[in-house]
Amino acid sequence: MISFIFYFLAAFAEIAGCFSFWACVRLGKTPLWIIPGTFSLLFFAWMLTKVNVDVAGRAYAIYGGIYILSSLIWLWAIEDTPPDKWDITGAAICLIGASIILFAPRS
């Protein structure tokens, strides 16, 4: 489903954008990190408009589960910290909820 691509692009763009602020404030990086972070957050918002869902609130609810999974991938790939069993369990629960919202039969 093409919407999953948009959801994952949105998630990594949001995480990267927020991480730029984190890096500036918490890791002491230069404030110039905020510039690409801002563009990344704009890209995130644009990607969410591309998903194939009829109402924004439902799109955001589905996105929540994908965002959590993407955050754990970021944790492992970028911050070199593997998720523990509780991270994985929590993400699985959230993805089940997001799947119910996404695939529920609607009239």
Rank of each mutant, 00 (worst) to 15 (best):
G97M: 07
S99P: 08
A77F: 15
L48A: 02
S3E: 05
V51I: 05
S99K: 08
W46V: 05
A56W: 14
W74N: 04
L42K: 07
T89V: 11
Y7N: 01
L9M: 14
D84K: 00
K50T: 01
P36C: 03
C24E: 08
G90T: 00
V55A: 10
G17M: 08
A59C: 03
A61F: 15
P31G: 05
K85A: 04
W33C: 11
A59R: 01
A61Y: 13
I62M: 14
I68M: 13
D87N: 13
L42V: 14
R26Q: 12
L72C: 08
S40F: 11
I15E: 01
S70F: 10
A13Q: 10
D80Q: 14
I88D: 00
A10H: 09
Y63D: 02
F4C: 05
L48S: 02
W86S: 01
A59E: 00
W76Q: 04
L75G: 07
I88A: 04
V55G: 05
G64H: 10
F6L: 00
I73P: 14
L69Q: 04
A45G: 08
G28C: 09
A61L: 13
E14T: 09
I93H: 02
I62K: 14
L102P: 09
S3C: 06
I96C: 09
I5Y: 15
I2D: 09
W46K: 01
L42R: 08
